[in-house]
C-alpha cells in the first residue's frame, strides 16, 4: 500500500532525475557542437539555446562570461534548474521515500548526489563542462538501471516511471521547440541551408535519437523527419507518442477502476495518448510547429497536475 505523500516523493524523484539527465545531455551536445559549428558568433548562440531549453532568465550584463555561465547551469545552488539543484531535489525526494525503495536504488541516487554536490568550481574549470555532464549522464544511467532491475514493477515503480515519462515528454518537446526557434534565428542571420540540417542533427543527438533515426530513415534525417521521429515514432523511447502511451500504461497499474468517467485523470491521459497515437505527420505539418509543441507541453503539465491532485495529495 502506498502513501499519497510517498507517491508524491517518488513522482518528483522521477521528474528531477529525468530533468537533470536532459539538461546535462543538452549542454554536452551543444558544448561539443560549438567546436565545429558553421557559424561565426556560435558561442552566444549556444548560450541562448541552453538558456531557452532549461527555461531560465539570464541577464547578460558586463560581468557575464563563459565561466560564470557554465557554473550557473551546472553547480549553482541558487539556480533551481541547475543540474546540481535537480539532483539535490531528486535525492531529497528519494530520502523522503527511502523506506519504499531498494537499497541499491537509494545507494545509486545517493552516490549521484554526492558526486554533483562534491564537484567544485575548480573541478569544473579543470575538467571542462563536457566532463562534468558526461559523468552526470553516467550516474543517471546507473540510477536508471537500479530503478528497472531492483524494484518490483508495482505501483511505486509505476509512479516513478510516470514522473520520468512526463518529464521526458516535456523535455523532448522543449528540445524540439528550442531547436526550431534556433533555426529561425539562424535564417534571420541569413545563414545557409546547412545550418538547418546541422541543428536537426543536434536536436536528435540531444535526445539520443540520432543513430536510431538514421537507421529508421536510412539517411541522415532532415528537420521534418527529425521532428516526426521525436513526436510520433511509436517505438523510440524518447518520442512524445511513446511517452504518453507509457504514462497511460503505468497509470493502469495504480488506477483502481477499469472504466473512467470523463474528467478523471485516466480519461484525460487516454484521450491525449490516443490523439498522438493516431496523429499523422501530414496533420502535424499543417499546424504551426512551435504552437503545436507549446500545446503539447501544456497538455503534459496539465496531466501531471491532475495526477498529483488525484493520487498524490495529502
Amino acid at each position: 500500500m502506498m502513501l499519497s505523500r510517498i507517491a508524491n516523493s517518488l513522482f518528483w524523484m522521477g521528474r528531477y532525475l529525468e530533468r537533470a539527465d536532459h539538461a546535462a545531455r543538452y549542454i554536452r551536445v551543444h558544448y561539443y557542437s560549438t567546436l565545429d559549428a558553421p557559424l561565426a558568433s556560435k558561442h552566444d548562440f549556444i548560450v541562448d539555446s541552453i538558456i531557452a531549453m532549461m527555461g531560465m532568465e539570464v541577464k547578460k550584463d558586463k560581468s557575464f562570461n563563459e565561466e560564470k555561465f557554465n557554473n550557473l547551469i551546472t553547480l549553482d545552488e541558487g539556480n533551481p534548474v541547475s543540474i546540481r539543484s535537480s539532483v539535490a531535489y531528486a535525492r531529497e525526494n528519494a530520502r523522503g521515500a527511502r523506506d519504499s525503495m531498494s537499497g541499491e536504488l537509494w545507494g545509486a541516487i545517493n552516490r549521484y548526489y554526492h558526486f554533483t554536490n562534491g564537484y567544485s568550481e575548480k573541478d569544473l574549470i579543470k575538467n571542462g563542462i563536457y566532463g562534468f555532464c558526461e559523468r552526470v549522464n553516467e550516474h543517471a544511467s546507473v540510477v536508471s538501471a537500479a530503478l528497472e532491475n531492483t524494484l518490483m514493477h508495482n505501483a511505486g515503480w509505476a509512479i516513478v516511471k510516470m514522473g520520468i515519462h512526463i518529464e521526458r515528454a516535456s523535455q523532448v518537446a522543449r528540445i524540439m521547440n528550442t531547436k526550431v526557434k534556433d533555426i529561425k534565428k539562424l535564417e534571420k542571420l541569413k545563414s545557409n541551408r546547412s545550418s538547418e540540417s546541422y541543428e536537426a542533427v543536434t536536436m536528435l543527438k540531444s535526445a539520443e535519437a540520432f543513430d536510431m533515426s538514421k537507421m529508421y530513415y536510412r539517411t541522415v534525417p532532415n528537420l521534418e523527419e527529425a521532428l516526426e521521429f521525436l513526436i510520433l515514432n511509436k517505438e523510440f523511447p524518447k518520442s512524445i507518442a511513446y511517452n504518453l502511451r507509457h504514462i497511460h500504461h503505468n497509470l493502469g497499474k495504480i488506477s483502481p477502476q477499469k472504466f473512467h468517467d470523463s474528467g478523471s485523470v485516466e480519461f484525460e491521459i487516454g484521450k491525449l495518448h490516443t490523439y498522438y497515437h493516431y496523429l499523422t505527420w501530414e496533420e502535424v505539418k499543417e499546424k504551426n510547429i512551435t504552437e503545436f509543441l507549446d500545446e503539447t507541453i501544456r497538455s503534459v503539465y496539465k496531466l501531471a497536475r491532475s495526477l498529483e491532485s488525484t493520487y498524490m495529495s495529502y
Binding site: R5, R98, D99
Partner: peptide, 13 residues
C-alpha cells in the same frame, strides 16, 4: 521501516 517492510508515516499522512 524499510527493514521491517512496513510504511514510514508522518503525522500528516
Amino acid at each position: 521501516a524499510q527493514s521491517m517492510g512496513i510504511q514510514l508515516v508522518e503525522g500528516r499522512d
